[in-house]
């Protein structure tokens, strides 16, 4: 057995390549990313590698982050908006070890933000990169089980089926029953899954100054939304898209604008609502 890995100069692990992936793999992923940026919303296949964590834990996002991060970057990782959950902490520590990069919990200070299920409340700016972890990249997969057929539908821009789903929701329940992973049209051409972010976050994707990259490890797909690209949530003229949020204010910072998590506080029906974005909530409280 080899000895425990030593810490090399620069703070990364000796014997490991920068940011864990070998350079050839990173080049391959960067090529896929360039293609994805060139064709906004289009899913580009890539050779997803085995990562030291299971599928579903962000293998796609990690590979994308590893391919774009440099020694001077500052990384923030959030899971459901929080910086302090197991998954977020593990991924942040992983990159601190294998890339030696600085990490932060502050949205404004980060250059690369890897996320699962949320977009930070603080507006992103030019130069930042938002990397989404994506479990299922295909927005049509519940409607059309044949992968070859979904690709054909994308190629032909044939998205009547998705509207049928929205129509059926309204016909049955009076409204579109999609509260997260709400499908969007990117640049007026490709139907895209925004990953399982709440529909509340969808408007933030539209003409965002930051670069948005999406990685699906198990499904081996990468897609992207370049800065300032149009991202429209599907809807009907007479049933416009409405981003939903709990009708409450944050119990800690009092915000009425942010996306809230419901926290059950006892077994007698007690509950509180808290900002899902922990960094944003903390800053608001600090400002007061």
């Amino acid at each position: 057995m080899s000895a425990a890995p030593e810490v090399a100069s620069g703070g990364t692990l000796a014997g490991y390549n920068f940011a864990y992936l070998d350079e050839d793999t990173k080049r391959m992923i960067r090529r896929a990313l360039l293609k994805a940026v060139a064709v906004p919303g289009h899913q580009v296949p890539f050779g997803s590698r085995e990562m030291p964590l299971p599928y579903g834990w962000g293998t796609g996002g990690i590979q994308v982050t590893a391919s774009v991060i440099g020694p001077d970057d500052t990384l923030k990782v959030i899971d459901q908006g929080a910086d302090d959950t197991t998954n977020a902490v593990s991924i942040r520590r992983f990159f601190a070890r294998v890339a030696g990069v600085a990490t932060t919990e502050r949205t404004a200070d980060a250059t690369v933000i890897q996320t699962r299920h949320r977009i930070p409340e603080t507006p992103l700016r030019e130069g930042q990169i938002l990397v989404y972890q994506v479990p299922m990249p295909e927005p049509l997969f519940r409607l059309e089980p044949r992968v070859a057929e979904t690709r054909r539908l994308h190629a032909l821009g044939d998205y009547g089926l998705m509207h049928v789903k929205l129509y059926e929701d309204i016909a049955r329940r009076g409204e579109v029953e999609i509260s997260y992973n709400y499908p969007v049209m990117v640049n007026g051409r490709y139907l895209m899954s925004p990953s399982p972010i709440p529909a509340f976050d969808n408007p933030k994707m539209d003409r965002m100054p930051a670069l948005q990259l999406f990685g699906a490890g198990r499904e081996k797909r990468i897609y992207a939304v370049p800065p300032y690209t149009s991202v429209r949530s599907l809807d009907f003229e007479d049933h416009p898209f409405r981003p939903g949020r709990a009708d409450a204010s944050c119990a800690l910072c009092g915000s009425r604008e942010t996306y809230l998590d419901e926290v059950v506080t006892d077994d007698r029906g007690g509950r509180r609502f808290l900002c899902s974005d922990t960094d944003y909530c903390a800053e608001r409280r600090a400002d007061r």
Partner: peptide, 11 residues
């Protein structure tokens, strides 16, 4: 469906 496929967007 066919109406939506050709761009009808008024429910």
């Amino acid at each position: 469906e066919r109406l939506m496929a050709v761009g009808a967007r008024h429910y």
